[in-house]
């Protein structure tokens, strides 16, 4: 019990460090993480939406908005864990200085998850306001949205932090973004239903976390709750649990040589 409270107090200290650093740049940070999905929403939703009027029974704009919300969270988490994580490890010694204190690597990683969960929630919420303003939310189920958003903080931070710990250069981080994150974004059912893809593509997509995040967010926004929603939720929980420990070893190797 006492051990547990120490663990979370340490993690909270890491969270606080990240919060103080973020506070200095929060305006530009929100603008950057917000601009891209908003552009997508407007350009595709209104532009392409003029031709593709109905998708799975709802307007195209309505179809893509919840998925873009999930993507906003994913990107907010991935960029911070990837790029900032890389810098914390390689250029400004933030993790190294933590290691001169009694903090341990699992506590540091837990603190990063708390922080990324916060970011996911925050950037998701900002985008949610836009979606709401467009009148694209039709269900009270959306009140449950914070739960998957918090989980995204772990699901997407874990692999990004792992890549940051293993990457030797900034370029190697870009591989992760352009070979993993971007394709996942394009294919995970944000813009079109996955069922119409060739089966082997669909099967790959089906095991990726973003797909379930997009589906669940859409189901919550449109009130299309079914057993499938629970299934999507369990996939996300499972991903969080499975990936959680991934960066710990990689960071330990870097920080305790």
């Amino acid at each position: 019990m006492k051990q547990g409270s120490r663990f979370w107090r340490s993690a909270a200290a890491v969270w606080w460090r990240n919060f103080l650093a973020w506070r200095k740049f929060w305006r530009s940070s929100i603008l950057l993480n917000f601009g891209e999905p908003l552009t997508n929403l407007l350009a595709l939703g209104l532009g392409l939406g003029a031709y593709v009027t109905v998708m799975q029974g709802v307007s195209f704009l309505q179809f893509i908005a919840p998925g873009l919300l999930a993507v906003t969270s994913m990107n907010a988490v991935t960029f911070d864990s990837g790029f900032e994580g890389y810098d914390r490890l390689n250029s400004n010694g933030v993790y190294q200085s933590m290691m001169t204190s009694p903090l341990t690597v699992p506590e540091i990683v837990a603190g990063e998850y708390l922080w990324e969960a916060t970011r996911s929630l925050l950037y998701g919420a900002v985008f949610f306001v836009v979606v709401l303003a467009f009148g694209l939310v039709h269900s009270a189920w959306i009140a449950l949205l914070p739960i998957p958003l918090l989980l995204f903080g772990v699901v997407f931070a874990a692999p990004a932090l792992y890549v940051a710990a293993r990457a030797k250069t900034h370029e190697q981080l870009f591989y992760y973004f352009s070979l993993v994150i971007t394709p996942m974004f394009m294919f995970s059912g944000v813009f079109f239903p996955v069922q119409h893809l060739p089966w082997f593509v669909a099967d790959i997509i089906y095991v990726l976390p973003l797909y379930h995040g997009v589906e669940l967010t859409r189901e919550l926004a449109l009130g299309q709750i079914s057993l499938a929603s629970l299934w999507n939720f369990l996939w996300i929980v499972g991903y969080a649990a499975a990936l959680m420990y991934l960066p710990v070893r990689a960071l330990e190797r870097r920080l305790t040589a």
Binding site: Q96, M98, P102
Partner: peptide, 19 residues
């Protein structure tokens, strides 16, 4: 390895939290 994103005071306060 002082934290470039924080002020001097914040650097010390954050570090104190680690302890």
């Amino acid at each position: 390895n002082v934290d470039p994103d924080l002020t001097l005071m914040e650097n010390l306060l954050v570090y104190a939290r680690y302890f």
